[in-house]
């Protein structure tokens, strides 16, 4: 078992202060402003324990919502929302012929599980759509909503190609995962990654995570899991339409839409020129029509 040498300095069961740069002990990375940080979520090792959901709600003081049964297997949160910043999807995939098929694929439990989160896009469409500047890029290259500036206009909600940002009707402001901005500033690993028992959610510096993901992908391919691929890594699926790359990216074994992820997400800003031209053409056409009718 690999233990960081610094761990030996903290052998007491209760500490009277926060461990400086604790993330070095828990995630093997020292958090420094000016560098890019993110999540690599390896869905092949997710066991659906929802520790990440609970840790996120605990740390961020988020209330439980969507009460009652969803009727969708073991999923109780349903989707990402203003009060749910981590959502574990449970996708039943028994056999090749669907849930009624008796034959199981080898080494496959019949369930796909994935812990979904804000992708902290490199070119974040929510940030581009925000008219007040409430959404901003932090010194850790993550995207955060400043609550004192958000006016609740909701432009960021349809701008997000992943359906992550949501308005809370109780406080009238936009909310989403902050990648534990307050924890990063204090040298702590984000709560979800720290609580993940299988390391399905890995936190770290982006370049290091991308390298780690590539190694894992090659390992899986060598073991015969040829359908594994990276979603959101530079140049791959999920990093399309001008997004460049996602700071929170995933290793998947099925098509993106199976996990409720868009096949080719795009920045709405890409469509501004076309939309403006169409609008101007429509106005010109209507003016011409009105002129002809008057004649």
């Amino acid at each position: 078992m690999n233990v960081h040498p610094r761990s030996l300095d903290y052998d007491q069961s209760s500490l009277d202060r926060v461990i400086p740069n604790e993330s070095e002990l828990t995630a093997g990375v020292v958090i420094e402003p000016g560098r890019s940080y993110g999540f690599f979520t390896d869905t092949t090792v997710c066991i659906g324990c929802k520790a990440c959901e609970v840790a996120c709600k605990e740390w961020n003081n988020l209330p439980a919502d969507n009460l009652g049964l969803t009727g969708e297997s073991y999923d109780n949160t349903g989707a990402l929302s203003a009060n749910t910043w981590r959502h574990v999807s449970f996708i039943e995939r028994s056999g090749a012929g669907g849930v009624r098929d008796n034959a199981q694929a080898p080494f496959q439990s019949g369930w796909l599980m994935m812990s979904d989160v804000c992708k902290h896009c490199h070119n974040a469409p929510c940030l581009e759509a925000c008219p007040t500047g409430a959404l901003f890029k932090t010194e850790f290259d993550t995207v955060v909503v400043q609550q004192d500036i958000c006016n609740g206009c909701g432009y960021c909600v349809p701008a997000c190609p992943f359906g992550v940002v949501d308005i809370n009707t109780l406080d009238g402001k936009a909310h989403k995962c902050t990648l534990c901005y307050d924890r990063l500033k204090g040298g702590l690993e984000p709560a979800c990654a720290k609580s993940c028992p299988t390391d399905s959610i890995q936190f770290g510096e982006l370049s290091d995570l991308q390298q780690r993901a590539q190694t894992r992908l090659e390992q899986l391919h060598a073991r015969g899991v040829t359908n594994a691929y990276l979603y959101g890594a530079p140049g791959g699926p999920g990093a399309t339409g001008g997004l460049e790359h996602l700071n929170a990216f995933f290793l998947l074994t099925e098509r993106p839409e199976i996990y409720n992820l868009p096949v080719a997400p795009t920045r709405p800003a890409n469509r501004v020129a076309g939309s403006l031209a169409a609008g101007l053409a429509a106005v010109a056409g209507l003016t011409l029509l009105a002129f002809l009718l008057k004649e």
Binding site: W59, N60, N61, L62, P63, Q147, G152, N168, L170, D171, G172, K173, H175
Partner: peptide
């Protein structure tokens, strides 16, 4: 956290509040 806060009452029970708009 943001507009959410936890209040501990005299009995030691914690309540989660969301600051209304």
């Amino acid at each position: 956290q943001e507009g959410r806060f936890q209040l501990s009452d005299d009995a030691g029970v914690s309540h989660l509040f969301i600051l209304s708009h």
